[in-house]
Structures are given as structure tokens and as C-alpha cells.
Design a protein around this nucleic acid. Sequence first.
DNA 1: GAAAAAACTGAATGACTATTCATTAGCGTA
DNA 2: TACGCTAATGAATAGTCATTCAGTTTTTTC
Lengths: 191, 191
Amino acid sequence: MNAERKEAKRERILDAAVVEIAGRGYYRTTVSDIAGRAGVADGTIYLYFKGKEDILVSIFERAMQRFADEARWIVEEGAGDPEQTLRRIVALHLTLLGEDRDLAVIFQVEFRHTLHVLELFSRSRIRDYLALIAQVVEDGKAAGVFRPDVDALFVAKVVFGILDEMATDWVLSRKNIRLASRSDSVSDLLL
Amino acid sequence: MNAERKEAKRERILDAAVVEIAGRGYYRTTVSDIAGRAGVADGTIYLYFKGKEDILVSIFERAMQRFADEARWIVEEGAGDPEQTLRRIVALHLTLLGEDRDLAVIFQVEFRHTLHVLELFSRSRIRDYLALIAQVVEDGKAAGVFRPDVDALFVAKVVFGILDEMATDWVLSRKNIRLASRSDSVSDLLL
DNA sequence: GAAAAAACTGAATGACTATTCATTAGCGTA
DNA sequence: TACGCTAATGAATAGTCATTCAGTTTTTTC
């Protein structure tokens, strides 16, 4: 089986896992549930992942990869206009989560929980993200867009906290508002 | 056994559960773990709680009760000075969580997860809390402390999001900063 | 197209743990 | 002190589920 097909099956298993775990939570989801939805036998899972926990880690990794790539691109591209950059990061954050409710559920609810297990690992990824936002704030201070007396990392945490609460609120409410529609309100409030 | 002693034992079990669950997470904590720490036999747990899940619900209920009582008192007492009231709610939120790290862990991490199970139930408690904050913001708008064009509930969510992220950050960092020390920074930023 | 290798299968295994319940201990009362 | 009642115990139960692996199917190689 060539690498391409193998990768495709791995993706299928991850996609199935996202749906199942979002629906029932990590601990209530069995490996059989995931295998069933992915259309493979239970044992096959173990040809692609070390174990159940590795599936969760892989979901995080895959999503974070996409997330980080886009964010970094925005920051690089937007050099010179910190306000616009921050607006675009806010929009990105809410759009990416708003596009896939299942993934959003896992991010807002499941990972929180399993941080117990993943702790250092996943928090460090989030720290990178926070540092990225802080960087933009620093640039903004230099450019005179933000007050010079604020602590950039503190502001980054505030920004992240707001985005995170918006996302959690969206995930837990039944409403069908588009999450990204909150984007401008958040940005306006911040700036 | 009189009602008083009975209540005391129930409390002891809850206290033990808070420590254990904060340490290993809900699903990794066995009923035996909790019983062991509380100094009772496994079976005794079931004389005080319907089952494992009921313990978690009870932790939430007990904490939320204390929380809500104090917050409502602040709001009632602080009528006429919305800014001060908001500052005190911010301080209360961070102080109560900052005083008991184990409880904070459960609130910031475990409940998120188990919201899957408790969903409507616990979210409604949080909605009450949000409504309380929104109320203060409304008063503030009337009193001219806040801009009249903001949506009070939206602001309440923002406030909650910031507090929540501060708490999560505190819980997950090893640092021994006192959580409540962030209180003024948050208030200043908000006001 | 046959042999070898790689993927896949799913029933069996083994470990774990929430809950139950027959038994014991404790305590107030007469 | 003996009786009855409540509380507590912890070993046994019953069920769940991650993981393994002997056997089967599919793919690749020559």
C-alpha cells in the first residue's frame, strides 16, 4: 500500500475520531466506535496509532498544524499594520473553529480535560500561539497603535481568553449563529 | 447518627474527591481512591451519593452555592456604584478560585469536560452568573460609567472569558503567583 | 501467475472498576 | 446488659473496553 493511500486511511480514522469524540467525549468513546465509523476493524486502528490516546494527540497535532501555518502567514504578511493583523488573527481563530463544530467541541471541551495527560505538550503549543499574538501587540506598541504601558503577553492572554470564551459559548449554545460573525465585535472592542 | 455528623462525613468525602479528581482527572479517579482518602470503605460512598457522577455534581453544586451567595450579596450591596461592584466581582472570582487550587483545577478543566454530561444543568448556572454580570453592566450604562452602545450580555461574556482564561492560565502554570493579584490589572483594563 | 510481503480482521484476552449486598460494628434505648 | 436499628464494611459481581494476535485477504514482486 503506497504512502498516499496509507495517509488517506489515517485521515479517515482521524476524521471519524473527531466526530465520535465530539459526540460522546473521549472517555465515553470506544476504539470500536471510531473503527466502526471509519469503516475499519478494531485492530486496524493499531496499525496507524500507538493507542487510543495517540489518536487524540494526533487530532490536536493535525489541527494545530493547520492553525499555526495560517496564523504565521498572516503575521508575516501583515508586517507594518498590526491592527489589521490582529483583526485577521481574530477572524482566523473564530473562522477555523466555526467551520467545524466537532473540532471546536474537541478543542474547547475535550482538550481542556485531557490537558491533564497532555499538559506540558499541548500547553507549549498554546504558548507559541500566545507569543505570536504578543508579538503583534509589541509591533502595535512600537507603531503607536496600542498604549505603550500595557504588557504584551498579558494582552495576548486577554485576547485569547475572549476568543476562547466566544468559542466555548458558541459550542455550548444550540444557536446557529456563525461564530465568525462575532469577529468584528471582538476586534472593535479590543482596539 | 445525627444529621450534623452525617453532613460532616459527606463533606469529608467531597473534600477527598476534590483532591483526587483535581490530581488525576475524573475518569482516572476511582471510587476507591476517593473512599481511601476520605477514610471510608468503598461501599460507604453509596450511602452518601447515588454514584460516582453524583459526587462530581455535588462538588459543583456546593462550590457554586458559595460563589453565587457571595456574588449576589456584592451586587445587592453595591447598588449605585457599578464600577466598584464590577471590580469586586472580578476580585471575588479570582480570589475564590485562587484560594483552592484543586477546586480551581476542577472548575477550569474537569467541568469543561463533563459539561457533556451535565450540559444544560451546569451551563444554566453559568448563565445565571453571566446574567448577574450583565446586570451590573446595565446599571453601569444607566449610570454613565459604561458606553451606552455596548451589549451588556456581550460584555459580560467578555468579562467572564477574561477571568476564565486568567484562571485557566493560573491553573496550568506552575507559578505561585497569587491569582487574585491579577484582579486590578483586569479591572483596569476593563474600565 | 505463484510466492512473498504487507494489510487487515475480529474474536479472545486480560485488566480494570463501579456498584451491590451479605455480614459486621456501633450506638442509643429501655 | 440485651435489643433493635442504623451505619459501615469490603469481598464478590458483572460489565466494559483497550489491546493483541492467529488467521485471512489483498497487494506487490519477480
